[in-house]
Simulated scan of single mutants.
Amino acid sequence: MNEISQAPTVATFDCRVAFAETLIELARTDHRIVAVCNDSVGSSNLNAFQKEFPDRLINVGIAEQNMVGVAAGLANGGFVPYVSCASPFLTGRALEQIKADVAYNNYHIVLCGQSPGMSYGELGPTHHSIEDFAWMRALTDLTILVPADPRQTRDAVRWASTANRPVFMRVGRFKIPSVTPEDEDFVPGRASRLRDGRDVTLIACGTMVSRALGAADQLAQKGISARVLNMTTIQPLDEAAVIEAATETGRIVTVEEAIIHGGLGSAVAECVVQNKPVPMRILGVPHLAPTGSTAFLLDHFGLNAEGIAKAALELVG
């Protein structure tokens, strides 16, 4: 597993552990909850779930389209399936089934894209999941959640169990620090303002939120006041927070571990251009990524505090 270096004083956590532990907690009190996977029990951290609920984990093997179809059948029978699969294969191979079997029927299914973005760095473009936001956003009836830390992962897994609608959520692979305030409630569709600012707004999601906070620190050293929004829900987008940021700071930088077309940046740009046009920069992956460690790839595409701060400085001038 790729480890992303952090400052030695900052504790980091594995969101997959938070996902698995929370799923077990829910299953103990809700007999409807089942897990469906594609020969990914280990990589999804579902070994403990399988041991405690051997009859409630369905492993279909490497057959992702069947996996989603089986989940749809279970949902139709009154179960709440959590479909756990490496995000590139869940969203790529099974896209038609997600559209026709899940979204079209409005089934209560939770699609859990494990190890998204460039988590599988050394395995190359076939295993990079940088298009998943764009593919899933095209299905307008699908809620898209991108937890930024273990706390939000737990909250998202719990919320999804009662959502009564189709949900897609990313579950990150590499360890990241906590960024969610202790007293903050999880509200899908609402952005979290982690830092206030007047000169520029940094809108990030998932693994990029802690890096946006690092960029805000760097900008502050240069006299630039940066607002930081954690956009946990890409669909539906918190348009009110985006418009407020555009109005009050006049500049927006978005950052995501995904292709720059069709994801968070596109969603924010669509909102901005129709309501309050302001200068923007969309940071992400501009094309198919090469093979390399996750740390190398993130730095290669400027998806670090330095790259985010540089884009903000270009806007501020």
Results as ranks from 00 to 15, higher is better:
50 Q>M: 14
14 D>S: 09
38 N>P: 11
80 V>N: 03
274 Q>S: 15
264 L>S: 00
295 A>K: 07
293 S>Q: 06
260 I>D: 05
281 R>Y: 01
7 A>V: 11
127 H>C: 08
236 P>C: 09
84 S>E: 12
17 V>R: 10
188 P>L: 12
103 A>Y: 00
35 A>Y: 00
201 T>C: 15
315 L>Y: 14
22 T>Y: 07
312 A>E: 13
261 H>K: 14
212 A>N: 11
36 V>D: 04
160 A>C: 03
144 I>R: 00
159 W>K: 05
316 V>A: 01
151 R>V: 14
193 R>W: 03
174 F>R: 01
103 A>V: 09
229 L>I: 08
91 T>D: 03
11 A>I: 06
187 V>M: 10
100 A>I: 13
298 L>D: 02
277 P>S: 04
40 S>Q: 15
69 G>E: 03
239 E>C: 02
286 P>K: 13
138 A>W: 14
294 T>K: 00
111 L>I: 07
238 D>A: 07
84 S>G: 07
311 A>I: 05
214 G>H: 12
281 R>P: 02
277 P>I: 10
234 I>L: 14
50 Q>I: 06
16 R>C: 06
289 A>W: 03
81 P>W: 09
27 A>I: 03
98 I>R: 00
149 D>F: 12
261 H>C: 12
274 Q>I: 07
170 R>M: 11
120 Y>W: 05
90 L>Q: 08
88 P>T: 05
166 P>K: 02
204 A>W: 04
28 R>C: 11
186 F>T: 06
154 R>N: 08
154 R>E: 15
128 H>M: 01
137 R>Q: 07
201 T>A: 15
209 V>W: 00
269 A>H: 14
63 A>V: 12
125 P>L: 01
217 D>L: 09
131 E>A: 03
256 E>M: 07
141 D>P: 10
28 R>W: 11
186 F>L: 15
172 G>I: 13
101 D>S: 03
130 I>W: 02
201 T>W: 04
33 I>N: 01
76 N>T: 14
140 T>K: 02
308 I>V: 15
257 E>S: 12
117 G>P: 07
86 A>P: 09
65 Q>F: 06
263 G>F: 01
67 M>L: 10
316 V>P: 04
158 R>Q: 11
174 F>D: 13
42 G>Y: 12
283 L>H: 05
114 Q>K: 07
215 A>G: 08
276 K>D: 12
36 V>T: 09
267 A>T: 06
311 A>Y: 05
76 N>G: 07
67 M>D: 07
308 I>W: 11
227 R>Q: 15
23 L>A: 00
69 G>Q: 04
60 V>P: 01
39 D>I: 08
160 A>S: 07
176 I>H: 06
271 C>S: 15
268 V>R: 01
275 N>C: 08
162 T>P: 05
69 G>S: 08
149 D>C: 06
210 S>E: 14
42 G>L: 08
46 L>K: 00
183 D>F: 03
274 Q>T: 14
310 K>L: 01
90 L>M: 13
4 I>L: 12
270 E>T: 02
114 Q>G: 04
219 L>H: 13
45 N>E: 14
225 S>Y: 10
274 Q>F: 11
169 M>C: 06
